[in-house]
């Protein structure tokens, strides 16, 4: 009884603390006149016609703030290797699972897999024309692999191909940035021809679709590896318990 009362007291104190912090934050933020100041986005929007991409978010991600995307991709790589390090220690000895999933899932996954991958590729290569791009399309491709793994758990991805694709796309990104440095004197310079008149066509924008396709390959392979490790974790545990 005493313990329960103490627990309730702790909850009340913590919720009061949260409310007090919320009120102080609101008091600070209410004084800001949010719709008056100019931002760096206005400058980017004015310059955006020169990059010949129809989607301004894409040109900010890959061109104006492209060096941030390099760092972001590095963080993604480190997190993926952390997941692999944590979850792969018990998997090296895992046996084959003789478990058959349901018939509907098996047939449905075969039908849907190609459509989902096609949709992912469409999102990646139309990243400079419509909403979407490398990050979203890569994750859509990873969900296709999630469906495939749910249907037949015996399957395993070829880690050689995944590692090759992941490291080659990462290196090609840096290489594209360095070629831009040597030819245009700025990092990630747009060295391919990008006439402004071609805006809105599939082949336009110079290096911007190339960079987004590389990012799409990298994100897709990393997310597929994460999904594979999480699914294999479960099936290993089932064999171990039986």
């Amino acid at each position: 009884m005493n313990l329960k009362k103490e627990l309730r007291l702790k909850h009340i104190i913590l919720s009061l603390l949260s409310s007090a912090l919320l009120l102080s934050f609101l008091g600070l933020l209410m004084q800001v006149k949010t719709n008056t100041y100019k931002t760096v986005g206005d400058i980017f929007l004015n310059l955006n016609m020169q990059t010949a991409t129809a989607n301004a978010v894409t040109s900010v991600v890959t061109f104006f703030r492209g060096i941030d995307t390099v760092g972001e991709v590095t963080v993604l790589f480190l997190a993926t290797s952390g997941v692999a390090l944590m979850l792969s220690s018990t998997q090296r000895t895992s046996k084959k699972v003789v478990k058959q999933e349901s018939f509907v899932l098996h047939v449905g996954s075969r039908l849907l897999m190609s459509v989902i991958i096609l949709f992912g590729v469409y999102i990646v290569i139309h990243g400079h024309l419509s909403p979407g791009g490398g990050f979203q399309g890569g994750v859509v491709i990873a969900t296709a692999f999630l469906l495939l793994f749910l249907a037949n758990p015996n399957m395993s991805l070829s880690h050689g191909i995944l590692t090759l694709g992941e490291s080659l796309s990462g290196s090609a990104y840096v290489l594209v940035a360095l070629i831009g440095l040597f030819k245009m004197n700025i990092l990630l310079g747009n060295f391919l021809p990008h006439p402004v008149g071609e805006i809105g066509e599939l082949v336009s924008g110079g290096i911007i679709p190339v960079i987004y396709i590389l990012v799409g390959i990298k994100v897709g392979s990393e997310m597929s590896v994460i999904v594979e490790y999480f699914i294999k974790e479960d099936y290993y545990k089932e064999v171990y318990d039986a």
Binding site: G41, L45, V57, V75, A79, V83, M86
Partner: peptide, 30 residues
């Protein structure tokens, strides 16, 4: 033309942050 549009910079930053969030979530869960 690129006039009368919302600011693209926060959208680009949040776009990458969501993807990082998933990878960090997977790391914590592992």
């Amino acid at each position: 033309t690129f006039t009368n549009m919302v600011d693209p910079v926060p959208q680009a930053m949040i776009l990458t942050t969501i993807v990082i969030g998933l990878a960090v979530l997977a790391l914590g869960l592992s």
